[in-house]
């Protein structure tokens, strides 16, 4: 019975992936991409990789999906060619895509057979201060990668802001939203954020011992802010406001300071003394989640644009 479920899941995954790539129309491709992401997260659950499933659902399907949708909306607004006319195969693009797919297939074929790090992990995990092995790897054993990831997000946001026009630089971020006061979107924007906030904080907090963590929780918190902004209940900030700058750098800064503190004591850079490891990881995760939430929300809202009502 479960074999049947997995087989159906695989067929649906391949089907939605093909529909996203081969189907006609950009909007349809985006919708299929989002459905593909949600099915993929079910697949990760079937593989008992709940951490990855949460990340895929929140970031892969949800956040990337809304980024693609806002891009599509922007393209249609400036009446650019959102729907490319059907002029046959674009040869350079097809060649590059085939080359990338070929390189990936080659890299996959030469990868060593993955071994399960059971023994080493079981030996090292009690010293990490957290019970979730994924969090232990992300925040302790391979903390370098996570630190750099959080900085990459910041760099992406700066790159996006550089796309804003000079004359709009002082304006609020993003396209003005028009929600009827007292309308359905406004009510939704009032009901959902408290629940979403609770879920986001819970995901960050539980990440130490069970699936969850800064990226998953931060994405949910970003979505909470976006719903409130879409409902017109909060106004997006301007680029020059220092409180938001602080929010953006809080996570990487706390992470970096913790690393330096470890280097000054004898634990080494990004190492934590065993006695306070659990607390240190929780503090870093909380700061990271806050920064990830602000950065992702700003990435979706986009560069400053004119037309906001004050």
């Amino acid at each position: 019975m479960t074999l049947l479920l997995d087989a159906v899941l695989c067929v649906l995954l391949l089907g939605t992936a093909l529909a996203a790539v081969l189907g006609r129309g950009v909007f349809r491709a985006i919708v299929f991409f989002i459905v593909y992401g949600l099915l993929l997260s079910v697949g990760w659950v079937r593989l008992e990789a709940v951490n990855v499933a949460l990340a895929e659902a929140a970031i892969g399907a949800g956040l990337t999906g809304i980024l693609l949708l806002t891009t599509y909306g922007k393209l249609t607004r400036v009446s650019a060619e959102a729907e490319p006319d059907d002029a046959g195969v674009n040869l350079p693009v097809a060649l590059v895509s085939v080359a990338v797919a070929g390189a990936l297939a080659w890299a996959w074929s030469v990868l060593p057979e993955p071994t399960r790090p059971r023994a080493e992990l079981a030996e090292a995990l009690p010293r990490a201060g957290v019970e979730n092995p994924v969090t232990a790897v992300l925040l302790s054993f391979r903390a370098w990668d996570t630190l750099l990831e959080s900085v990459v997000l910041l760099a992406a946001l700066i790159g996006l802001w550089l796309l804003g026009r000079d004359e709009d630089w002082q304006q609020r971020l993003g396209v003005p939203q028009h929600a009827r006061p007292g309308g359905i979107m406004t009510s939704f924007g009032r009901v959902l954020p408290p629940v979403g906030f609770l879920v986001g904080v819970y995901l960050v907090f539980i990440g130490a011992d069970e699936p969850g963590g800064a990226f998953q929780g931060g994405t949910v918190l970003a979505a909470v802010g976006l719903v409130a902004a879409l409902a017109g209940l909060i106004q997006p900030p301007r680029i020059g406001q220092w409180q938001w700058h602080a929010g953006l750098v809080l996570g990487p800064l706390v992470f970096l300071l913790a690393g330096v503190a470890g280097a000054l004591s004898d634990s080494g850079f990004l190492g934590y003394p065993e006695a306070i490891a659990g607390t240190a990881i929780l503090v870093i995760e909380a700061a990271l989640a806050a920064s990830i939430a602000v950065t992702l929300a700003f990435l979706v809202i986009g560069p400053p644009e004119k037309g906001h009502r004050e």
Partner: peptide, 16 residues
């Protein structure tokens, strides 16, 4: 309950 809330809201928005 959350799925109901989201579905109800989205169908209202699409209908509008």
């Amino acid at each position: 309950a959350l799925a109901l809330l989201a579905a109800g809201t989205v169908s209202q928005l699409i209908a509008r």
